[in-house]
Simulated assay, not measured.
Amino acid sequence: MAPIVAIGLHLVALLGGAAFVLQQAANANLRGALGSPFWAGLTNFLAGGLALSLVLIAIREPIPSLQVVTRAPWFAWFGGCLGALYIIGIILLLPRLGAATVVALFMVGQILTSLAFDHFGLLGAPIREVGLPRLIGASLMVAGVGLICVF
């Protein structure tokens, strides 16, 4: 991969992280306005579904056939349910713990789970051995999150 492409992809990932925090703050505010984390979560998914629908229309993406849809593994269908759990969890936790603590704790959960997925190739993830450098990096992240959560 060309260095400029790699830099661009890393910047997109950083922007995704910023969007994640903005989304969580927006959802927490929506919860306050609607009085329910569940209505806020549903609104989040409906708005996201509408946005994706508009993108699909704009790029003229064809609807997958039933044959294509049925080839997905059984666990692929749980993504939306896990996304709902994720969104509701953050909506409930952010007002109580603060944005930095919630995002940091979720990030550590993501890092540790990702390392397991990489190392063991879980659910079809490509195997990438977890060596000492990655373990040290994860340990430093856990320590950093500990500092964020304590102070």
Rank of each mutant, 00 (worst) to 15 (best):
G98S: 02
R128P: 01
A116C: 15
A99Y: 13
V108K: 00
H119Y: 04
L112C: 14
T101A: 11
A125R: 13
L123D: 05
M107A: 13
F117Y: 12
G109W: 11
Q110I: 07
S114Y: 02
M107P: 04
L115A: 12
F117S: 03
G121P: 11
I111C: 06
A99N: 07
L112P: 04
I111F: 02
A125D: 07
V108I: 13
L123V: 13
G121T: 12
L112A: 15
G124C: 13
H119M: 10
D118L: 11
G98F: 00
V102F: 02
L123G: 05
S114M: 06
S114E: 06
G124H: 08
H119L: 10
L115K: 00
V108W: 03
L97R: 03
D118E: 15
F117C: 08
L105N: 09
A125Y: 08
A99G: 10
F120P: 01
F120S: 04
A99L: 15
M107V: 14
A99S: 13
L115Q: 11
R128G: 08
L105H: 02
A116R: 05
L112N: 07
T101L: 01
A104P: 09
T101P: 03
G98V: 01
S114I: 05
V108Q: 01
L123I: 14
A100S: 08
F120D: 08
F120K: 04
V108E: 03
D118G: 10
L112Y: 10
T101S: 11
H119T: 09
G124F: 06
L97G: 07
Q110S: 12
V102P: 00
A104W: 02
F120N: 03
G98K: 00
L123P: 00
L122C: 11
L115I: 07
S114D: 09
T113S: 14
A100N: 02
V103W: 01
L97P: 00
G124D: 10
A99F: 11
I111K: 00
R128S: 14
A100D: 04
M107R: 05
G121H: 11
P126R: 07
I127F: 03
A99I: 14
H119C: 12
G124N: 13
H119G: 14
